[in-house]
């Protein structure tokens, strides 16, 4: 184990801002991409359903 305490862990040797920003941004972007694709899929299916019911 590398850390003496949780506050030392969050402090990242004084580089907390840079380290946590990098990891946070990565996580945020990847999660956003998945959510956006789920929405896009639902919209496309709905539209196709409308077209199918229209005939």
């Amino acid at each position: 184990m590398q850390w003496s305490s949780w506050s030392a862990f969050f402090n990242m040797g004084g580089y907390a801002f840079y380290v946590w920003f990098s990891f946070g941004l990565t996580a945020l972007w990847l999660v956003w991409e998945v959510l956006a694709l789920r929405k896009r899929s639902a919209v496309a299916l709905n539209l196709a359903k409308l077209l199918a019911q229209d005939k």
């Binding site: 991409e33 998945v34 694709l37 789920r38 896009r40 899929s41 496309a44 299916l45 709905n46 539209l47 196709a48 359903k49 077209l51 199918a52 019911q53």
Partner: peptide, 25 residues
Amino acid sequence: VALMRVRCIMLERERASDWVKEQAL
């Protein structure tokens, strides 16, 4: 994620085809 997106692209591009209609229904 690429598989998710390719499925969206298929639905959007071929929305007039029968298989998409079946899938949607």
